[in-house]
Design a protein around this nucleic acid. Structure first.
Lengths: 198, 198, 198, 198
DNA sequence: GATGAATGAGAATTCATTCAT
DNA sequence: CATGAATGAATTCTCATTCAT
């Protein structure tokens, strides 16, 4: 049974990100991760139950930090508009700041079996809910159309951010992702505002 | 080398869709596909160069039909608004009508190696360009904001449609996907109209 | 059952030599031979029982011609010494004149299964016996040592000619094989003369 | 990558000799070798890079021992004549002592692809050079004809020994191979001595 | 006679996981 | 705690041969 935490736990996760980013999901063997982490193959299994568990843990670890950072910034934002802007900006900013991780989440981890992706989605739920709560508050405060379907609006936000980021990663991160924050924010905002008296 | 066309070519593609949808990408062995298609294993290789070629061909075949159908419907649409509406509606309608295929594209085929996904993206380009051309015409006809970034708008459309469809597939296609056409269309339209005097 | 003879019989044999020489034994598929011979795959089986039969027949055909040519030349040779000289010279001369065939016999056909090589040896027997008969006559005429073991002497002749030819083929036939006739003849002759009063 | 040596390295090589001798080259599957060696299939790949590597290693291992043994015996031989005699005797003696290995080298290993045989020839070079050096010394010491072509003489020796051994193996090793040492030695010696004053 | 589309058996290799030390 | 040697299941593709036309 994986007994989490300990210095090696982090080492292994970091090694997994590096190995997957460099070699691709399908060439990221446990033995490579072990070597990169500076531990023996068997040691991996003292910290994780199996290979899938490494990937889930990697995603959990990184994602909770990702969401936490956004959650904190959102507290600074006063209006709903500012919150939406903050969300978009922070999403791009964090992924642009960690391109190795971006490659892993946008491209490599998607090659995992559908079973694993189900579990990854569980981890994502926290973030999706954060997005949805902005929509809900936007409707309450009449900043967004009262007819807005919250789930669909959330899917539009996440789908758009994800597609834009994936395109950027597939172009080898060679242009400025954060520059898209403003136009994406604009389009989303207007999409949600429709019918609101201004 | 695969000499395409012939009745068995279609049989094998259809069998591949069924086998992948039922067993998942990683358990879709060539022998299973052959059996389901009612041909010998070796026969597969008279029509396809290798397993990957089956998947590419499957996607090409289905996707070109998918796009062609939308392209034809678009001709009926007079205004840009109608065209956007048609795009969204037809996208959902066709995937809703072929749930087995939807599972294959939204979930299973994404597990393919990055090499294969590169080739899948090539096939997608035709569709992406069709979407982008609607945006461009929309700007020309001043139906959409003149400041609209065409690529980003295209990514918003595709990202949204894809995310909505994937969520639907992951919920086992148990609700009505086509019902989302209207609200999604509305959000997208307003997102693009922004700043246009009406 | 292969009903030999007919123009295609020869075509197929010649095609087999060419295909094996160019592609190597392991890449000489029946379909390639058929194509090169300008007949359908199935036609091969009207003239030969199976793939092995093509190879055996090829060897038989070529070998009987090879031996016949030597046998005829031997008639011109008056002394045993001349006969030995003729044998060596003709062996090299014929292989040097048909390098494609030399590659096939010296390198490619040896990769065949031991079962096939057993049958090839059967075909060789005629030639081996021709060699042996020279030895025997040499002993009778007291040109060779009376203690000579005929089988061993024959193996020495054939082993030497074969090794020399194989080395030549492995060096891409790029030096003059026939030039070795004289020195090889000399060594063999003296090897057999040993102890004979001269 | 194969980390040679260790008790299993030897086990696997010995198993390969047995399996090939019994089943023939083409039926010597890796799994059979593993089973015979008493290890798991995968273990093979901890010691060898691939199947071909087993065969090369087998040949290297055995051949270097074979040559070393002859080299040592040659030191005991004072005259060139003794050396030639030793060479012939030891060649036959060692193969006669290990009939399973003789079958492998004389028949089975020759079925390998030309790529593999190229590598086998590399290993053989050491032995061929040992033979050639005897010829050279023989000429220097005027035991052999000064006109002797060293390469051809070497090919005569090796070709003869090889042909005699192959004939013996094809007759199921059922007569005494070593008994041929003397007559073969005699023929070779006289072949090389020609023209030498005695 | 001639065709060629269809058949289907057979094997090397990888890599997540274990467990004796 | 940590190690790393050993395990063994699992799958694509080739090609000699057949037989309906």
């Amino acid at each position: 049974m994986g007994k989490k935490r300990g210095p090696k736990y982090e080492q292994i996760i970091e090694a997994a990100v590096r190995v997957i980013a460099r070699n691709g999901y399908h060439h990221a063997q446990v033995s490579k991760i072990a070597k990169d982490a500076g531990v023996a193959d068997g040691t991996i299994y003292l910290y994780f139950n199996n290979k899938e568990d490494i990937l889930i843990s990697l995603f959990e670890e990184k994602m909770s930090y990702f969401v936490e950072k956004i959650r904190m910034q959102l507290k600074e934002a006063e209006t709903i508009e500012d919150q939406l802007k903050t969300l978009v900006t922070m999403h791009f900013k964090q992924l642009a700041a960690n391109q190795e991780y971006a490659v892993v989440t946008q491209l490599e981890l998607r090659q995992s079996s559908s079973a694993l992706r189900q579990r990854i989605n569980e981890v994502l739920k926290d973030y999706l809910w954060l997005i949805e709560s902005i929509i809900i508050r936007g409707k309450e405060k009449e900043a967004f159309s009262p007819h807005l379907n919250e789930k669909l609006a959330r899917q539009m936000i996440f789908g758009t951010l994800d597609e834009v980021t994936t395109n950027w990663v597939m172009k080898d991160c060679k242009y400025d992702l954060e520059a898209f924050s403003e136009p994406i924010y604009e389009m989303l905002l207007h999409g949600f505002k429709a019918g609101v008296k201004t």
